[in-house]
Simulated scan of single mutants.
Amino acid sequence: MPDHRPLVLIPSYNTGPILRQTLDAVLRANVPVWVVFDGSTDGSPELIKDLSSPHLKVLSLEKNSGKGSAVLYGLKAAMTEGFTHVLSMDADGQHPAEKIREFFAISAEFPQAAIFGRPVFDSSAPALRVNGRKISNFWANLETLGWGIDDSLFGMRLYPAADLLAVMESTQFARRFDFEPEVAVRLAWRGVPIINLPTPVLYPKAEDGGISQFRYLRDNTLLTWMHLRLMLGFALRFPYLLLRGDNPLESENPPSR
């Protein structure tokens, strides 16, 4: 069986007190957890200084460079220490720590695959966000000829580290809000099998510490430009994508719950 050493990688930018709650939950999984502070200026690094765990490691970027940049920074450091897979999670309490073990187990069985969370929304999810992501999902599946990206924007994903590094080094983009959809498409172009795992998602209220870095005009403009670029890449790759067949692990997708 190939070597399989996964870790949880959490990029964080001005997440506030909810970061501590997120880490308290994630550390209960008893797996390696790395936090990458992306130039945070809100004092949140101080909030976790007293956390003592042999599983926790904290890295920092001096200035805010974007989620994709923070993931890339942590990814490179993790690979130098022999980790083979990274499970990216948001720091704001949206992603369920109790699913970590399931992501790891599926990855151990299929180490060649990327495991993408398929969000299961509850009543806390803003309708604008739920419906708006359908547009990006449509384009991502067109750009990959239906390789199997159930949700192009959801941030709880487990990646084979070498494949993620390869696709990120193949582009100067995918460094900010365009990180998840762009790497999803590029992993599909690379032929990385994708398994979609139904995953509950929460949107904590502001009074509970919930915070969002999403900016409607800025980030939708970024996504529009991204899909224009990716459509050009799709056109160049179309003959190859047409001939190569379907996602070989499509049948391994767990049923919706």
Rank of each mutant, 00 (worst) to 15 (best):
Y159G: 06
L128P: 00
S88Y: 13
N137G: 07
I100A: 06
W225D: 12
A25W: 01
L19I: 06
P126I: 02
L56C: 01
A127F: 10
D24L: 14
W34E: 14
P198E: 11
L232D: 02
F116V: 00
A114M: 05
G146S: 03
R175S: 13
P17K: 13
T80W: 02
T171R: 14
E182M: 10
L187C: 04
S69G: 06
P96Y: 11
S124Q: 10
P200H: 08
G82E: 09
G132W: 00
S136T: 04
R5H: 11
P32E: 08
A206S: 13
L51M: 01
N14D: 15
D38H: 01
D50E: 04
K99A: 09
E46V: 02
I194N: 14
S60Q: 08
M156I: 11
I18D: 00
I100V: 14
L128D: 14
I194S: 13
I115W: 03
V120T: 02
R20W: 14
V86C: 12
L249T: 03
E169P: 05
G66K: 00
S44I: 02
W34P: 03
F121C: 01
S256T: 09
S88T: 14
L236Y: 04
N141G: 00
G39M: 05
L56P: 06
V120H: 05
Y13G: 07
K49P: 01
G74F: 04
D151L: 08
A97M: 09
A105D: 14
N131W: 08
